[in-house]
Design a protein around this nucleic acid. Structure first.
Lengths: 127, 127
DNA sequence: ACAGTTACTTGCAAAATGCAAGTCTCGAAG
DNA sequence: CTTCGAGACTTGCATTTTGCAAGTAACTGT
């Protein structure tokens, strides 16, 4: 009897390689910048749009949806009329810090002209 | 007198943020998979095309060109008629190892079903 | 009643990606 | 010779993703 491939895995990911999987989740020009902003203590839609790279609002809305679906961020209601949300990293999302740190260090060594932001001492997580 | 902004920096990069710069260099679905393959001791065009994710050949050619232009990889002639090249990481490229390691570890913790490849003991670098 | 704020959504043009097929150079087989 | 096949790309075009501008919706403050 053939085992039915129930797996959403193959639908979501190109291969079982961990690098490929990570890229399928956040391998594009914008996703990690949203994550970066969360690490810089930004939490609201408007704050993300104000970052210097100028993310288009439709892309931002899409990325927030995907990141929430992936369990990397969480939407938290902060006002009920009209309903408004803040976005926070989950612990899964907070673990991306190591990737961002590795990127920052590489850029500091190898890309002339980068200016690294202050590191936020304690990060708020919502699971 | 206004200083003329000679800087290719602003043409190449969206902002001075190190994360944004790294993403401008390798923030897409394929670039880091080519880098991964180099870390797995693959060096020829044909080897890259055979990886399980199935990179389209036009994309591969384009990424190799960009990575070479960015000083992350180096083309090395291994046969002269017809001229054939192998691609090697430069030391700048080899420093991306920390980013890949961080990604691998995140995936091992947070993505069910990934299968990590063996790590190649000593990596050949060509500067 | 009306302007302003926040958080999106929609429509469409432009760019990037993906697939198949084609090219070019040479080495070896017949 | 002539053809065949391998390796490394390139080209053409369809599909998908991105980017920009404008629009919408639910309030709040004046």
């Amino acid at each position: 009897m053939k085992k039915k491939s129930n797996s959403t895995f193959t639908e979501e990911f190109r291969s079982t390689c961990p690098i490929a999987c990570v890229l399928d989740i956040l391998g594009d020009k914008w996703t990690l910048l949203v994550i970066r902003d969360l690490f810089l203590d930004k939490h609201r839609y408007g704050e993300f749009t104000q970052s210097s790279e100028g993310i288009p609002t439709n892309i931002l809305a899409d990325r927030l949806k995907r990141l929430e679906a992936a369990g990397i961020i969480k939407k938290v209601l902060y006002q009920s009329s009209p309903p408004r949300f803040e976005y926070y990293l989950t612990s899964k999302g907070a673990d991306l810090g190591k990737i961002l740190t590795a990127m920052r260090q590489w850029a500091e060594h190898h890309v002339q002209g980068v200016i690294s932001p202050e590191i936020i001492p304690k990060l708020e997580i919502r699971d």
